[in-house]
């Protein structure tokens, strides 16, 4: 199945802003992001902590709806899904 994965702001700088992934069936939201982020250690480290968990400020969206990081492992993707991952910015 094909899903679109988009990284915003700093994540996009490190990992590329948008890609279409041909993912196997039963791929979870976590799997998708982890696989993509693994291509760049700094990008991976910006999203995941040393235990491999999502950093607590990371925001995950699936088809425009927020998915809590705690639910990302059991959120299975479907053909055509659009996933967005972004960090809030804090400067002013």
């Amino acid at each position: 199945m094909k899903v679109t994965l988009r990284f915003f702001a700093r994540f996009g700088e490190l990992l590329g802003k948008s890609r279409v992934v041909d993912a196997p069936e039963n791929t979870s939201l976590s799997d998708l992001i982890r696989d993509a982020a693994s291509q760049n250690s700094e990008g991976y480290g910006s999203i995941f902590d040393e235990h491999g968990a999502f950093r607590d400020f990371v925001i995950l969206m699936r088809n425009g709806k927020r998915v809590p990081a705690a639910a990302a492992d059991r959120t299975l993707l479907s053909e055509g899904d659009e996933v967005a991952v972004f960090p809030p910015v804090a400067g002013g």
């Binding site: 915003f8 700093r10 910015v89 804090a90 400067g91 002013g92």
Partner: peptide, 10 residues
């Protein structure tokens, strides 16, 4: 609310 970093903002 507004916030920025680099070329990005919300």
């Amino acid at each position: 609310h507004g916030a920025i970093r680099g070329f990005y903002g919300q």
